[in-house]
Design a protein around this nucleic acid. Structure first.
Length: 279
DNA sequence: CAAGAATCCTGTCAGC
DNA sequence: TGCTGACAGGATTCTT
């Protein structure tokens, strides 16, 4: 379920488990996800101390002493599992296992294999090819209505597609785009270039609020960001429109007075929205 | 050049 | 129960 809030929560879980710790053992079980793991990954990790973490868009950067950062992307189905180290079977689809000197095991699992792992010099993280083209962080103060309007100006794709474009604003995925557009009262089909002025003000505010609330829900629903089953960072969340086709939205009476939340397909992805309140 | 479609891969779930 | 097809939260690459 990894969009920005989930990635943020996973990162905080990794932080709690790994920051300041030395990696005693690193094992690569399968080295070909979306792209090949970098050569020497396990060797680079073994014996390294984890000095810190950073999130950029949906990417997690784990910084090691010695000047390298490990770049993680969870793709569609990536997860992190944590538990006590020791003898255990490697779970199906666990591609990378880390063991710390103080006895923790962290596994990167990705059945669908759309995720990726890479190494990048910490001093040049933002120059990495996967990060270089990203738009602003939506929760940064620098992400303003003026910045969003400028990025959308002249674009003739639907606003839904423009917000999924990580170069417009970084970290939103299908769910949070649907949610933010609903809250802002903007139709996902509206041409991106027409989102300006008051609409942009509203949209920026709702993007920030939607993400902030989801991150808070993620943190509060987990003790130290780890579930009892050892999974980091995923949590249940009540969406207002996502996955709610045919239900009444909170601003409408619902059927039969109003058709309720409808589902359409845009750029091959499901979009959920309310025809009555989103314009 | 921009926008949309196709694509990678596996798991899950609804329907028959 | 078993099979089949639709669908899935992403991002890149190929077509139009």
């Amino acid at each position: 379920m990894p969009e920005l809030p989930e990635v943020e929560t996973v990162m905080r879980g990794l932080q709690a488990a790994l920051e300041g710790r030395v990696i005693r053992r690193a094992a690569v079980h399968r080295a070909d996800l979306r792209r090949a793991f970098p050569p020497g990954l396990a060797a680079r990790l073994t014996g390294a101390r984890v000095t810190g973490f950073r999130r950029r868009a949906k990417y997690i950067l784990m910084r090691l002493d010695g000047g390298d950062s490990v770049l993680f992307h969870l793709g569609m189905s990536g997860r992190m599992l944590i538990g006590p180290a020791g003898v255990h079977d490697v779970p199906r689809h666990e591609h990378l296992t880390l063991e710390t000197e103080d006895g923790w095991w962290v596994g990167f699992i990705d059945p669908r294999r759309f995720g990726c792992i890479d190494l990048v010099a910490t001093a040049a993280e933002d120059a990495h090819g996967l990060l270089a083209g990203l738009g602003p962080e939506p929760l940064d103060a620098a992400f303003t209505p003026a910045v969003l309007s400028a990025a959308l100006a002249g674009r003739r794709s639907p606003i839904k597609a423009a917000l999924l474009d990580q170069g417009t604003v970084a970290g939103l995925g299908n769910i949070y785009v649907c949610e933010a557009l609903f809250r802002a009262g903007i139709s996902p089909r509206r041409l991106a270039g027409t989102v300006a002025g008051a609409r942009a003000v509203r949209l920026v505010a709702e993007i920030k609020a939607t993400l902030t609330e989801a991150i808070a829900a993620g943190g509060s629903s987990l003790r130290d960001y780890v579930r009892p089953d050892g999974e980091l960072g995923y949590f249940q969340h009540a969406w207002k429109v996502y996955g709610r086709e045919g239900e009444a939205c909170e601003r409408c009476p619902g059927p039969p007075a109003c058709p309720g939340v409808c589902r359409i397909v845009q750029s091959g992805r499901s979009t959920f929205y309310c025809r009555a309140t989103q314009r």
